[in-house]
Design a protein around this nucleic acid. Structure first.
Lengths: 186, 186, 186, 186
DNA sequence: GATGAATGAGGGTTCATTCAT
DNA sequence: GATGAATGAACCCTCATTCAT
């Protein structure tokens, strides 16, 4: 009579991994359901842990939301940091950055949905993450370099504040592009 | 003694107006809070009616949501219908349509937020509105006309399904524009 | 086939009475179980209402607790107010007051248990009831009168602050009496 | 090389001390927060041990509560046992006992609060401690001696059951004293 | 012996929805 | 037609308790 009955669920003892699993599950749940539509039970189920663990690792639903948002930004910034931007060709560098961002949107649709969900809850903005500045600094630094080079090369007409680029709503940005595109092609 | 067919119209007027008030309140609540963030109490308070009235006029929270979505589309379509599109200049006609849409987005920010909130509730899509087809038909018709003319004039290279234009995510649309814009300007 | 099935629970529509029922139930539950031992479910069950009603009438568990405490004081003060105290015999008046209080303790044992339960939750004291002063003022007034008369008649040796009488812990009071009694009788 | 019978005693010492620490922490927690207000986490933190240790040394929250209650009684009884009561002066002996008890209350306020907390949990009474009788027997014995002597000396009018003295609520006891005091002084 | 990690069972609170006037 | 009063079903969160190292 061999031991054929599967071992009991064998609760994970790896706290690092558990934390990651919860975060991933939260990312999925929040981006697909929004902040108020998300259910802590579902996050727990997706992560394969019990509900109280979520409160052990993160403090509350809002805290997991913040952590998920933070994680999303960390992921995209990490990708940007690994980009090889040619400092001598600022135009191409900007193009590269935009392309990477767009590609990230397409490859991880939950990202843009998660960002959108921010608008739907009063007051909770990514800017309120305690270390938001640190996280965004990666992009700011790279953008600054590129813009500085561009100015030096005479490619861009005037000083552009990289932080302003970040804070201007993407919609506005796209709107401009769209309008110019249409009028430009007539 | 003029206008003596009195009471009924007045009643109906009030009834109609109450319905409108509720709808407007729902529009505001849903677009600012999202589907699950919205509270029926708040809609009632905003509309200045009691909660049961809401269930009298609409059947359930989801029904009000659908009605609000419908109303939003009706409003934008009504605007489009009043647009004077030159059938002999399809390029300009498309430009006009896009401009109107963009302007609508800017003037009524709740519209785009309401549309976004759709993605955040599983399954509930505008397509599920019972008369979605009818509502959208205004735009479809106009777009069809324009595209047909354009094809005839040789402006557009190939058949374009107007419905496909509507269902493709706006983001995708913008992405194309953005990518072309960048590469086109290098 | 006569109508023998009892009418449905016939939900109470009398908000005044419902409020009173909840308060009474809370009084019982809190005094028998203490603040943290009390269960909102049980209060609701005792009062014969559903749980949400408790949150409609009072705002939270802590608020019902405060209301119950308040009610307890109101009840004992009401009794004191109806006491006929002879202003010309301060000694007898004090005796009367003490007797009434003791009797109240004996007739409504929950009262003293409810008061005791205060000590078991940090910070929550009767003094924190917003209108504590108003409620206690009945006793303060009566006590002041009696003490003033007593002083005038030369019965009490010196000014006694009635408020101090109230704030001094009953235990301390009893301890003094007990010690004097024992030593006095030796 | 003195004192080489080393490890075991030391171990036992530590074990004993850990147990004592937990008990002391429990005493503080239970008397300040009541039975249901007490948190096992806090007891562990106060005692400087991990939570599972508590379940190793005691079996459950209720068991710690019982142990704390027991410890409280053991402490007061130990004090009483060391009292030098003059068997030939029963009146003074009783006075001494009462004085000691009152002093104990004053010096260790948590004692009376812990006792009070009993009333606030249904069913859990000191009487349910398995060895309650043994613990209380110290006082019973001493009281019996004193009362017996008193009767022999003709100081007390009739048989008094010492156990009844213990079970009658302290409040009742104080009430008698208070009433007599007031009426006696008129 | 000691502990970090994990959980079942329940507690307080909210919310969409209905009843009865 | 209109509403104050009421509720079932969750939802977020906590807590005593145990497992596995």
């Amino acid at each position: 009579m061999p031991m054929t009955d599967a071992p009991p669920p064998q609760r994970r003892r790896d706290s690092e991994r558990t934390r990651g699993d919860i975060l991933q599950a939260a990312l999925e749940e929040f981006s697909s359901m929004g902040h108020s539509g998300a259910r802590v039970d579902r996050i727990a189920a997706r992560a394969g842990v019990s509900k109280p663990m979520i409160y052990d690792y993160f403090g509350s639903k809002d805290d997991i939301y913040a952590a998920a948002l933070r994680e999303a930004y960390v992921q995209i910034r990490r990708g940007e940091a690994q980009l090889a931007l040619d400092p001598n060709n600022p135009r191409a560098a900007v193009r590269e950055l935009v392309h990477f961002t767009m590609d990230h949107f397409r490859r991880k649709p939950w990202f843009i949905r998660l960002l959108n969900s921010e608008n739907l809850m009063g007051g909770k903005t990514v800017a309120q993450l305690s270390d938001a500045a640190d996280i965004q600094s990666v992009l700011v630094t790279r953008l600054s370099e590129v813009l500085a080079q561009g100015k030096r090369h005479g490619v861009f007409r005037r000083d552009v504040d990289p932080v302003e680029c970040l804070t201007s709503a993407p919609m506005e940005h796209f709107r401009h592009l769209a309008e110019r595109r249409v009028s430009g092609s007539s």
